[in-house]
Amino acid sequence: MSRTPLVRPAPLPELPPEFAYLDEEPEPTGSRTRRRRRRVLTALFYLLLTGIVLFLGRYVRADDGDPIVVPAVPAATAGVSTEAPSAPAPASPAPHPHEAGTSGKFRSVTGYGPVLGTAGPIRRFRVVVEQPVSADAAADFADEVNRALGDPRSWIHTRKFRLQRVPMSAKAEFTVFLASARSSEEMCRKGGLETDGYTSCRLSEQVIINDDRWVGSVRGYGAPLSTYRQYVINHEVGHQFGHGHESCLGKGRRAPVMMQQTYGLKGCLANPWPYPDAARP
């Protein structure tokens, strides 16, 4: 009796790796849908949380409890400041009550001031202060400008000219502004100077005094606020009269008034006068 030979089936081919999951038990459709929904909800939650953190991070509270908005850091702007540093600006002192407003509009000091100096033609200037500001506060600033420019150690020492403050209705060679940090920065930038809202500057026929520096001076200046105020007036008006920057001439010596004293004295002593001893230091 002949036997029928057994025929063995051919082995199944191996599946390529990309189809290996077919060997596993498939995940139920409902389970995949729930897992996908959880991932979407988790992503939305973190996006919402990130948005809340970024939004709240833009607001801080000042020392007096009033909320203020922290502006974004502006991109670098071309231009050279009258007192532009190569290093970051030093930290300013604790805040003081500001004397100028922040509206971008200015109040002119009325009337005529005394003639400052004893000889030479009269060079006239105006004084304006950013609003809102009281007439008394504006007049006080004008008086300090007069005291700084009318001191015998100031620019009138040469007896080549005299100075006088005049009202807005009169012709003047230049105007002295007391402006908020923000307004002074914008004004200086329009003239091609970048101050980062920190320093004062001088443009054509405009001497712009930064109110933050006027009320707070700079940390480590080593002299009273009144001295810094005399310095910043004589320094910026010195630019108006055609003087450029100068450097410290040696440790322990008086800083020239045209030195950038706002950014450090470099071993010199604070000095607000062009002619502290009847001669330039």
Rank of each mutant, 00 (worst) to 15 (best):
V257P: 02
E205D: 12
V129G: 08
I122W: 08
F177C: 02
V127C: 11
P74V: 04
P88C: 03
H96F: 09
S183V: 12
Q260I: 06
N234R: 01
W155F: 03
P224W: 04
S92R: 14
V133E: 13
R3E: 14
S108T: 12
S180P: 15
Y221N: 09
A20C: 10
L48A: 14
L178V: 07
L178F: 06
R39F: 08
V176Y: 10
N210V: 02
L269R: 03
R253F: 10
Y263V: 15
F55S: 12
V237D: 06
F141Y: 11
Q240K: 06
I122R: 10
P281L: 05
V218W: 05
E246V: 00
K190G: 15
T29Y: 10
Y228E: 09
G79H: 02
R254V: 05
H96S: 14
T29M: 11
K105C: 05
A172P: 10
E236C: 02
L56D: 07
T118P: 06
T102P: 08
G150K: 05
P88E: 03
V60D: 07
E14I: 11
F177Y: 11
A20D: 14
G104H: 04
P11Q: 07
K171A: 14
L193T: 10
P93W: 09
V145S: 12
L178T: 06
R107P: 13
L22P: 02
Y275A: 00
F125G: 03
L41H: 06
S169I: 04
R189T: 15
T33H: 13
V115R: 15
S92H: 11
R147P: 08
